[in-house]
Amino acid sequence: MDLSALRVEEVQNVINAMQKILECPICLELIKEPVSTKCDHIFCKFCMLKLLNQKKGPSQCPLCKNDITKRSLQESTRFSQLVEELLKIICAFQLDTGLEYANSYNFAKKENNSPEHLKDEVSIIQSMGYRNRAKRLLQSEPENPSLQETSLSVQLSNLGTVRTLRTKQRIQPQKTSVYIELGSDSSEDTVNKATYCSVGDQELLQITPQGTRDEISLDSAKKAACEFSETDVTNTEHHQPSNNDLNTTEKRAAERHPEKYQGSSVSNLHVEPCGTNTHASSLQHENSSLLLTKDRMNVEKAEFCNKSKQPGLARSQHNRWAGSKETCNDRRTPSTEKKVDLNADPLCERKEWNKQKLPCSENPRDTEDVPWITLNSSIQKVNEWFSRSDELLGSDDSHDGESESNAKVADVLDVLNEVDEYSGSSEKIDLLASDPHEALICKSERVHSKSVESNIEDKIFGKTYRKKASLPNLSHVTENLIIGAFVTEPQIIQERPLTNKLKRKRRPTSGL
């Protein structure tokens, strides 16, 4: 017993010596996670971090007073192994002897410093981030199933929210409404489509400006004509009531908005009720001829604005009016007729031209339509002016008669200019590109209106002035400009410049 007691005391002394060697000089306990400095002193990692955080910048070693920084600290694995072995020896000594260790306080702390507990403390002390800490805590505590279930439920809930957000973003663009038309193969669909197009076009005519009305009406008319041609002859009974509906809707729209509806009346003529396609083609032919005449008058307007600064050229074209007008009339009417003589009366030419125009518009179905009313009214106005011209010709002399006839021709041009508003800008460009020769010939008609105004002003003063002067240069210039014009009389060319000069002198006297 005595020997055993001596041996136990010796073992205890050895353990105490080893414990003092492996103590931390700051906390005076076994080193936890030993860290060595540049001066080869060993301290606990937790104690050194606490010391360095007390001051900004480098701190001093507690043993040798040298500078220490966080970067200079290094882990010493050898001392950590020695500490672990010492703890194992102490545990074995207690089991063999059955005696508690003399320094129970220190031993209890040593026992608490088992490797499992050290790992837990290291995970908390090290600044490795929240995710690494959570992982280490889960690994160190596998015995708690409640914690695992809560963490898994949190992760699953987070994943569910992310997935639901993604699915919502994908589903939202798919919620856009999609309209699908289910059509049938019955023959009544074509008639319904035609009526739908006509009503939609009328609404567009009321909303859209004048520049786009003609294009819309032309497209709708083409669509309706194609649909009529596709149907068989057996379905004509269905077409006639639908066309009557079209007429009623167009008349109502014309009564409500007459000014807006006139812009599309000329282009919509071939959508009118037709028994066969031949009647629609004839109407299209007549409309094309009318559009040609209207576009020519538009060309004359532009030329008149350009040549208004040259009064000499405008005056020299006075007698070329009849010849150029004959050529335009021959090209406007498709019928083959002989040219009228140069010395014939211009009023007779106008009456013949009106007689040619009237039969074209005397179809029984055309008179029933609303768009032809505008053309009939313009023709009636022309006839009224010609009836007035006959009365004026009986009273005035030959020279005054010529000037009045020219004035009436200008009035006719004004009437025809009203129809110019109905034609589109695209048709003007096509006419100029296809028929430049006709445009040059028809330019002379509009330029002549300037000389007509001068004659009217001469009649106000009650006299006409003449001068025997020749202007050969002007006649040559005008002959080169206009290709299809005829030779003019030299006496009238000489008379016109004198009248304008005298007018300039006598205007201030009349004002006084």
Rank of each mutant, 00 (worst) to 15 (best):
N106K: 09
V35E: 00
L156T: 13
L165R: 07
R131G: 10
L147W: 09
P25K: 11
D40G: 11
C39V: 00
Y130L: 04
I15D: 04
C27M: 01
R166G: 06
L152A: 05
R163I: 14
E9G: 04
L138M: 07
E33T: 06
Y130C: 02
E141K: 06
K88D: 12
E33W: 11
I26A: 08
S146V: 08
E111V: 07
L28P: 01
D40R: 11
E33A: 09
D185Y: 08
L156K: 04
S151K: 07
H41R: 00
Q60R: 10
Q139F: 03
A92H: 00
Q148M: 08
K65R: 07
E149Q: 04
F79L: 04
E111A: 10
I89Y: 01
F93R: 00
L159H: 02
E121Q: 11
E149M: 03
L118R: 11
K135R: 10
Q148E: 06
R7M: 04
Q148A: 14
D189W: 01
L95E: 10
C64H: 04
E10G: 04
N132W: 02
E149P: 09
R133D: 02
K88Y: 15
V122R: 04
E188V: 08
K135Y: 05
S104T: 09
K168T: 05
T176C: 09
K55D: 15
Q174R: 10
Y179E: 11
R7F: 01
R133M: 07
L63T: 14
P115A: 03
Q148H: 11
Y130K: 10
I68R: 00
K135N: 05
G57M: 04
H41V: 00
N53W: 04
T167E: 10
K50Y: 02
K45L: 06
R163P: 03
T161I: 05
K20G: 07
I31L: 11
L118I: 06
N158R: 05
V35N: 02
I26G: 02
T164K: 13
V35A: 15
G160D: 06
Y130S: 10
N132Y: 02
E149D: 00
I68F: 05
D120K: 14
Q174Y: 01
T190L: 14
S72L: 11
N112E: 02
N112R: 08
T150E: 12
A17L: 01
Q94M: 04
F107Q: 15
E149K: 13
I15C: 03
I90M: 15
S59K: 03
S177H: 04
N112G: 04
S76V: 03
L22M: 04
Q148I: 04
K65F: 15
S114L: 01
E100C: 08
S157A: 08
Y101G: 04
E149W: 03
K175C: 15
T167M: 15
I125Y: 14
V191D: 09
Q148Y: 14
C39F: 00
L99Y: 03
P145I: 14
E149T: 07
T77W: 15
L6T: 11
R133I: 00
N113R: 04
V191P: 14
V178A: 05
E181K: 05
T161G: 09
L6R: 09
K55H: 13
E9P: 04
L165Q: 12
Q81G: 08
K65V: 12
D185Q: 14
P115R: 12
K88G: 10
K70L: 13
T167W: 10
K55A: 05
L3E: 13
E149G: 07
Q172S: 04
A5V: 09
S157C: 09
N113P: 09
T161P: 14
S186F: 07
N132F: 01
C39Q: 00
E121D: 10
P25Y: 07
L49H: 15
N16R: 11
R78F: 02
S157H: 04
Q172T: 07
T150S: 06
E116K: 02
I89K: 00
L73G: 03
E100D: 02
T69A: 07
L82C: 14
L138Y: 15
I31K: 01
F79I: 10
K88M: 15
I125W: 12
M128H: 13
L51R: 12
S114D: 14
I15S: 00
P142S: 07
G160K: 03
D40P: 11
S157D: 14
D67V: 15
I89D: 00
L22P: 00
I42H: 02
T161L: 09
F107T: 03
I42S: 02
R131Q: 12
Q169T: 09
Q155K: 09
N144H: 15
N66G: 04
M18T: 00
K110G: 07
K20L: 15
S153P: 10
E75C: 01
S114G: 08
E84L: 12
N158D: 03
S186I: 04
K55P: 03
K88F: 15
H41K: 00
K175F: 03
E116W: 12
L95S: 07
P173T: 04
S59A: 07
Q148V: 10
L22D: 01
H117R: 13
V14L: 03
E10V: 06
K88N: 13
L28S: 02
Y179V: 09
N66A: 11
L152S: 13
R133Y: 14
K168D: 11
A134N: 11
K175R: 07
R78N: 12
S186D: 07
T97E: 00
E141A: 07
I15H: 00
S151M: 02
T276K: 06
H257V: 04
H117M: 05
S157T: 06
T69V: 07
N158V: 05
N132H: 15
S59Q: 15
K56N: 13
E100Y: 02
K168Y: 12
K65T: 15
L6W: 09
L3H: 15
V162R: 06
E111I: 13
A102E: 13
V191A: 07
S281Y: 12
H41M: 01
I124K: 08
L3V: 13
S80V: 05
E181T: 05
V178I: 06
G57V: 15
K32V: 03
Q81N: 14
N113S: 07
Y105D: 11
K65W: 15
E188F: 07
C27E: 00
Q126G: 11
E29I: 01
L51A: 05
T97P: 00
R78E: 03
K65S: 02
K32P: 04
I15W: 06
L99S: 04
E141L: 06
V162M: 04
S59E: 13
K135G: 10
F46L: 15
Q155I: 12
N106Q: 03
L99K: 03
F43V: 14
I125S: 12
S127V: 12
N53D: 11
I90K: 15
S151P: 13
P115G: 10
S80A: 07
Q148W: 01
T164R: 05
L22R: 00
E29P: 02
Y105T: 04
E84P: 14
I26F: 07
L49I: 07
I125N: 08
P34R: 02
D189K: 12
K38A: 09
T164L: 06
P25E: 03
Q174C: 01
N144W: 10
N66I: 15
Q155D: 10
P173F: 09
I31A: 06
D67T: 00
S177M: 13
E75W: 15
R131L: 12
Y179M: 14
A108F: 06
I15R: 00
I15F: 10
S146R: 11
I15P: 00
F107S: 02
E100N: 02
L73T: 07
I15N: 00
K88A: 13
E9V: 14
A102I: 12
L159Q: 15
L118C: 05
I90V: 10
Q139C: 02
S177T: 04
D2E: 11
S153H: 11
S186G: 09
I171P: 09
I26K: 02
S186T: 13
I125F: 13
L152W: 07
